[in-house]
């Protein structure tokens, strides 16, 4: 349904507003709790707003998490490496699967699609053993090196996009004597910006929020990421400090929220251009 601007029926607006409020409610609760004193977090009936906002909860929560800025640095570093690695390697592989003809390509691609179905728990234990064998347990490498080896889902998205670029473009370049890598780097990649941005954003969010990977592979507290640091706030013997936890969650969410808000138009166009067909 793509009616023109004037003809959006009133019930569409109402539905959107109602659903929007419903979806925002938990956030509202999160932020309102992050500003309450602890004794107001467990009131019956629940209290919608703090009697007086406790801005101190934010610095307090950061202190309670441990070295907040160090965690933030670790998270950013890992997110950066993962985004660079995934975008570059997935594009390279997707190029090989879409714009070159070679024997066995489709069979290989089928294998790639099939790997998407291997659940992480299946490979978790042997991968742990592998990283142990190369002495990477307790270092950052297990959390970013795999990103440089292309992810099946991202290769799939990018391949769909690359297929939609007319063949003639690269043929012309080939006749001019361009190397295959230059065609990839100077012709195809610039055209694929929205799709690359989409992959980058997906990867950024996945890394930013990853919890299991850092939990298993990191050993030292000073390497923890924000997502793992949040866990340190969760229940000790004294119970969960709800207000701190919500304040910290708001802080962790904020950068991703801003990032999405700024890029959402390109992001959605990026997915659209990949076509998924």
């Amino acid at each position: 349904m793509k009616p023109t601007r004037s003809s959006v029926p009133w019930f569409t607006r109402v539905a959107l507003i109602l659903l929007g409020v419903l979806f925002l409610l938990p956030f509202f609760w999160m932020v309102s709790t992050s500003l309450k004193p602890l004794n107001e977090t467990m009131k019956l009936p629940p209290q919608w707003l703090p009697s007086s906002p406790q801005w101190n909860n934010y610095p307090d929560a950061m202190r309670a998490m441990g070295p907040f800025w160090l965690y933030a640095r670790n998270s950013l570093l890992l997110a950066f490496l993962n985004v660079i690695g995934t975008v570059f390697s997935s594009a390279l592989v997707a190029y090989g699967f879409s714009r070159l003809d070679w024997r066995g390509r489709d069979a290989c691609f089928f294998v790639l699609l099939a790997t998407m179905m291997i659940p992480f728990p299946v490979v978790m234990v042997p991968i742990y053993g592998l990283f142990k064998a190369v002495g990477w347990i307790g270092t950052f490498q297990p959390l970013w090196v795999p990103a440089f080896l292309a992810g099946a889902f991202n290769v799939f998205l990018l391949r769909q996009f690359f297929l939609s670029i007319p063949r003639d473009l690269s043929e012309a370049a080939r006749i001019d004597g361009c190397s295959e890598f230059r065609i990839f780097w100077q012709i195809i990649l610039p055209l694929a910006k929205p799709a690359l941005l989409t992959v980058a954003l997906f990867q950024f969010m996945a890394t930013w929020n990853d919890f299991l990977g850092p939990l298993i592979f990191l050993a030292r507290e000073n390497q923890y990421t924000l997502a793992l640091g949040l866990q340190a706030l969760q229940g000790t013997i004294s119970g969960t400090p709800w207000h701190h936890l919500m304040a910290a969650s708001t802080l962790v969410l904020l950068p991703v929220l801003v990032l999405f808000f700024l890029t959402q138009r390109t992001f959605i166009r990026g997915i659209a251009t990949t076509g998924l067909k």
């Binding site: 979806f23 938990p26 956030f27 999160m30 969010m205 930013w208 929020n209 919890f211 924000l226 997502a227 949040l230 866990q231 969760q234 936890l245 919500m246 910290a248 969650s249 962790v252 969410l253 991703v256 929220l257 999405f260 959402q264």
Partner: peptide, 10 residues
């Protein structure tokens, strides 16, 4: 889209 950005712990 916001909820899918929230870390699993939170």
């Amino acid at each position: 889209f916001l909820p899918s950005l929230v870390p699993a712990i939170s």
